[in-house]
Write a protein that binds this DNA or RNA. Structure first.
Lengths: 161, 161
DNA sequence: TTTGGTGCAAACCGTTTGCATCGCT
DNA sequence: AGCGATGCAAACGGTTTGCACCAAA
């Protein structure tokens, strides 16, 4: 079920249409191309990369439409981002093996430890990709504080805690 | 061994001094304060947060010294960053559970799958932090391509693949 | 006509860099 | 004196936003 698998792409386009119908989103030419571009690769491209690719077929698209579309797709749960969404780099002086809990709304990051998770083994296929420096678990969720005060109307995206 | 544990802070300061001695780094007042600030918390602050904290005790520090110091500490392996280092947000249309391999040099991201890792359980303590949306493994390493051509002299930090 | 979506350009913000100065050895 | 570290200010690059225009219902 790799993203390159054409049947997987079809499935995702189906899903997109279903969600669009359910939520009353307009599936404009631009939106369709942007989603298709992202769904057809497993390289996890940046907005700019998607922009340049879509631009080839559709010279009038603008970068900000790509951004708006991507976040819109993200908001309705059709796509995700890689790693914690954040506005700034976060640093870590804890060199012992540990794992992270990340709040998807406010960006809070907390360490936790687990011998069980420390012992996890990555599959052989990963070793073919390159060397391994470390492996850690990233748990995403809504932190206790953010559960109290429900999401703000607009950008539910990042804020330093 | 939480970062708030004062004995842990001491241990880290020891380590800092040892590495500084070994590598001939100058431990200026600024550098010491910046490291201390980071090592004393487990909030994984941004450069700006560290800057504001250090500034209280040392009103003349500048934000760029904080950045330079943090990356210097990072380059000698004394601190790390949370999540993949990247210059731009990367998007992902793969909603099935999967995991990521991230190259620490060029920023390449690749999916991989593992039933074993899909089944991992997070410790109870994490559930106290908030709700859980998903849990995935992030493996960091140097990808095959980057191993061939050794690191560039300057910033070994990010570039879109 | 009304409601969104889009494109453009300017604003924004985190981060980096060039350069002159400072402080330690 | 010599040399790396620092501070300042300006540049940079990714991202967002205000606004006018356009297209579909």
């Amino acid at each position: 079920m790799s993203p390159r698998d054409p049947s997987s792409l079809d499935k995702r386009l189906e899903h997109l249409k279903a969600v669009a119908r359910a939520k009353g989103l307009k599936l404009t030419h631009q939106r369709l191309e942007i989603f298709r571009e992202l769904a057809a690769t497993d390289e996890h491209p940046s907005a700019d990369k998607i922009f340049r690719a879509v631009q080839r077929r559709m010279p009038t698209v603008s970068l900000d439409t790509v951004y708006r579309t991507l976040w819109m797709l993200h908001d309705v749960g059709l796509i995700t981002t890689v790693g914690p969404e954040r506005e700034a780099v976060r640093f870590d002086a804890n060199l012992d093996q540990h794992h992270h809990y990340v709040c998807v709304q406010c960006g809070l990051v907390r360490d936790f430890e687990s011998n069980e998770l420390n012992a996890l083994r990555v599959p052989a296929s990963v070793h073919r990709l390159g060397s391994i420096v470390n492996a850690q678990v990233e748990v995403r969720g809504l932190c206790a504080k953010c559960q109290e005060r429900p999401a703000r109307g607009k950008k539910a995206r990042s804020v330093s805690p």
